[in-house]
Simulated assay, not measured.
Amino acid sequence: MAARIPATVVTGFLGAGKTSLIRHMIENNKGKRLAFLINEFGNLGIDRELLLGCGIEGCGEEDVVELANGCICCTVADDFLPAIEAILDRPQPPDHILIETSGLALPKPLVKAFAWPEVKARVTVDGVITVVDSKAVAEGRFADDETAVQAQREADESLDHDNPLEEVFEDQLLCADMVILNKLDLLDDGSADRIEADLAAHLRPGVRFVRAREAAVDPAVLLGLDAAAEDDLESRPSHHDSHDGEDDHDHDDFDSFTLSMASIDDADALEQRILGAIAANDILRVKGFLDRPGVPRREVVQAVGPRLRRYFDRAWKDGETRRTELVVIGRKGFDRAAVERAIRG
């Protein structure tokens, strides 16, 4: 039997640095033929566009497959299997497949799909890499306030105290073969040790931490783990495992929408409006592209929590429609109209 193609699943919460990690792997892959499967939450393919905008040889249109507007862990049969089979059936199949899940996805249902007969004979999960935003974790963004929860419980025992964000985050850790502590340049000395100690309780035995700034990790560290994760599902528990073997995972905990705008004359003012909207509403993530009049290059916006980053990634192509579009992701029930008003100004 021919050797199976290894696949690496890159998971992690919103804004942790998954796409940056994959871009770094592309830049340093040393001649391997790679294929990429990108899963988006929302109908604007930001992450695929970011990869295609990298300008790196070996990262062409045909190499980056996007599954948009649906969580890969909930649409495995309809979306993932046809996409992975199309990649495998190419005249020159890739040496390695990289799969980036959406920041709201659970990795375990995806890993289960690799145990399906039509996939297992041809592909194996080399490893599950979980990228962590160390700065966000240090700020307690995925930890419940135990005192507040207890007060709510005492006030109304019928309340559901589950924190869906924390469960998603913990499931991503529980499935990991390696955890990348990213954005350590935003923390003071000693914080990484504390974060490792806190997160270790949510990891399986033997899972290692790798520390990173701007997701710069040598691909040699990430590829070739030989985990065969599809054969190791029982050791990867999930909050969403159910007694009948199906996964109970509801993305109704989150909402998203795409905001289209005219060209942006004052990007600094827009940045302040975005940050104000995030602070005033239950917004988890804002990402997208800006059309700046008279500027030949496309500007990227990446915001998570109170941090926002802007940079130019590539020139607008000949014949391409220049546009300003942002994807806004938040908890279920956030006031979309208020957010849109705040950002538009």
Rank of each mutant, 00 (worst) to 15 (best):
G345P: 06
E214V: 05
H96L: 12
E66V: 11
T324V: 09
E246D: 13
L67A: 02
A269H: 12
G55R: 01
D156Q: 10
L44N: 07
V221S: 08
R323C: 09
F41G: 01
K317T: 07
L159S: 05
I56P: 00
F13T: 04
A201E: 15
I72W: 01
Q150L: 15
F114C: 01
L50V: 13
E118I: 11
A229C: 13
V123L: 09
D177E: 10
E234S: 14
D255Q: 11
A337Q: 13
L44W: 12
F257R: 04
L44T: 10
H161A: 10
P237K: 07
L81D: 07
A35S: 14
D156W: 09
D95L: 04
T130C: 12
C71A: 04
V149G: 00
H243T: 15
L34S: 05
A228D: 14
D335C: 06
A303H: 04
F254L: 06
A277I: 07
I84T: 09
E234H: 11
E234Q: 13
L165C: 02
T11L: 07
E230C: 02
M261N: 04
G53D: 13
I97Y: 08
I129C: 09
A337I: 06
D268T: 14
G45P: 15
G288D: 01
D171C: 10
D232N: 11
Q172A: 03
L225V: 08
I283P: 06
L110N: 01
G319M: 09
S242G: 15
Q172N: 03
A229L: 01
V210A: 13
D244S: 07
D231L: 13
L187S: 08
T258H: 05
I129F: 05
P94K: 04
S242T: 15
E139Q: 15
P107H: 04
E27P: 00
A7F: 09
V210Y: 08
F36Q: 02
V111K: 00
K287F: 04
I46T: 11
D144H: 01
V119W: 02
A220V: 13
P293I: 06
V168F: 04
N43Q: 15
R208H: 14
L159A: 11
S191A: 15
G190D: 07
R90Y: 03
Q150S: 11
R314P: 04
A83H: 08
D265V: 14
A200G: 10
V119T: 06
I46E: 02
I278G: 00
D188H: 12
V339F: 10
I84V: 15
E66Y: 00
E340P: 09
D160Q: 10
G305H: 13
L270G: 07
G45V: 02
T75E: 10
L81V: 15
R331K: 14
R285E: 02
G345Q: 05
S235N: 12
T258W: 07
R314Y: 09
L88D: 12
N69R: 11
A86Y: 04
V304W: 03
L199A: 04
